[in-house]
Nucleic acid binder design. Structure first.
Lengths: 203, 203
DNA sequence: GTCTATAGGGAGATAGAC
DNA sequence: GTCTATCTCCCTATAGAC
């Protein structure tokens, strides 16, 4: 594998460092000086790659969603990997968790630090977030034909809540594997969502 | 109702303003100048009430947990309000959501901004968090006798994930009431948690 | 592509008058 | 209990040398 001279390498390392700092500290607490030090350059040099701090972090957050979308689409592309509806959903849950824990810090940065970013930056990212959420809503509507459709968007929010907060406590090196975690979340979600059919309409 | 001269009133208003700013902006982005302006005083005056920014926010976060604990204990104190296990859990879920949406911004501030605060501050709060989480683990263990006990701590984490992220999307003025939300979350959680008994052991 | 040097602004915190 | 004034520090961002 030939290693060509990659001019974007420095830029990439800045992005990686920014994502890691975001997870640990949030937006405002993360300084360009720290990021530069992590990479081994000076703060001013970052402006050769990005126009501003906001510009840099827009790219980090966007990449965080792209990682999730790519994981989601990789399941879409192989629709015959499993037999049952439950197993199919579990694949998507596993992909989402994989984006959080196995493909760098970008998705983790997005999930933990998005709400610590300035409003203007968030506005630029919201359409991408909406797109990913829409994919999930469509998936659930296509697959859970026996569940009242109007309940699914709310159920998805509960599912996202359970999945995304794993970033606060799950240890990939602990006893429970990501596969095991995906299985547990999926089973609990699917049993729960089916129960909504039996439920009295809400006040 | 006689209105006595209350020397802690100014202090209380600073705390309230700090909690609201925390929800909107996170720890580092919230400045003492802003908080002072919200209250109608100058930044330097805050130091008459608190030793430091960190000191002020420790009190905000602590109060956020106290509100949850008080809501939890108010259910403990009236154990004969309902017949079934499900209804009983629903009362606690409703109390937790009430702390998030109906008793000021303190609990919301804690849930959204805790991880944006400096490490030293977080360390001071962690024992209080642990205490509240322990109450929930005990509650579930006492009440869900038919569920394998080792699964309950994980199930509680899923439940907290679903409850706490409602702060990102739930609108108390919308069509769905807090009672309705509590009912939906509880039903989905309980059906899901019972399904764990049937599940293969995880890898 | 990275450096040094620095401009310009805003943060937390303190001292002392009122 | 609040004010004004100010100290000190660190941030983002820019300019120009190498």
């Amino acid at each position: 594998m030939r290693r060509t001279r990659d001019t974007s390498n420095g830029r990439q390392r800045v992005l990686d460092a920014a994502a890691e700092r975001l997870v640990a500290q949030g937006y405002t607490a993360t300084t360009l000086r720290e990021i530069a030090a992590d990479v081994g350059i000076k703060a001013g040099s970052i402006y050769h790659h990005f126009d501003s701090k906001e510009d840099l972090f827009i790219e980090v957050f966007s990449r965080g969603i792209e990682v999730m979308v790519e994981a989601f689409e990789s399941i879409d592309a192989s629709p015959d990997l499993c037999d049952t509806v439950n197993d199919r959903i579990e694949l998507y849950v596993r992909a989402h968790l994989g984006a959080l824990f196995e493909h760098g810090s970008y998705t983790a940065a997005h999930v933990t630090a998005f709400f610590t970013a300035p409003n203007e930056l968030r506005s630029a990212i919201v359409p991408l977030r909406d797109d990913y959420e829409h994919r999930w809503n469509s998936l659930l509507a296509d697959v859970l034909l026996d569940v009242e459709a109007s309940r699914l968007p709310l159920a998805r929010l509960f599912l996202f809540g359970a999945m995304n907060t794993t970033i606060e406590w799950f240890d990939p090196l602990g006893d429970l594997s990501l596969d095991g975690l995906a299985n547990l979340i999926t089973v609990q979600f699917l049993e729960g969502v089916h129960s909504l059919n039996l439920q009295r309409s809400t006040q």
